[in-house]
């Protein structure tokens, strides 16, 4: 049994999605989220890292009605239902923007850049959006 689990784990890849763009000025974060939602169905070891302006995608109180673009902040709240639970936020980027976890729509793990850097090094695949 333990062997079987080990064998299964060998086929699971660690894939990290790095979100570094603000949400509406470009499509990168939105299409990144679409990619993440599909990959979530493949039972890989997925994680998301929000760095720099990527943090703005998680900001509360976004109302895109006036710019003619569909909002998607709430979609991040659905990630939990897809078993995507590793959401890391770069502390430096968060503080730089005068934000705290209270300003974000989902529960995240705030980490130092060095800690996220160590996690990056463990990944099989890293995709920046």
């Amino acid at each position: 049994m333990a062997n079987m689990e080990l064998e299964e784990n060998a086929n699971v890849k660690k894939i990290m999605h790095v979100l570094r763009h603000a949400p509406h000025g470009t499509i990168y974060t939105y299409e990144g989220l679409e990619m993440i939602l599909i990959m979530a169905a493949y039972e890989q070891d997925l994680s998301l890292a929000f760095i720099g302006d990527g943090i703005y995608a998680l900001k509360k109180n976004q109302d895109t009605a006036g710019i003619g673009i569909k909002g998607f902040a709430r979609t991040f709240m659905a990630l939990d239902g897809y078993d995507v639970e590793k959401l890391y936020v770069d502390q430096h980027s968060l503080e730089e923007r005068g934000l705290t976890v209270e300003d974000l729509v989902v529960d995240v793990e705030v980490m130092s850049s060095a800690e996220i850097g160590r996690l990056m090094k463990e990944q099989d695949v890293i995709i920046h959006h």
Partner: peptide, 15 residues
């Protein structure tokens, strides 16, 4: 762009 300055915050020695 701040790509360089951002990247180096996450860089592990030797990489």
């Amino acid at each position: 762009s701040d790509s360089l300055e951002t990247c180096i915050r996450f860089l592990e020695p030797g990489d």
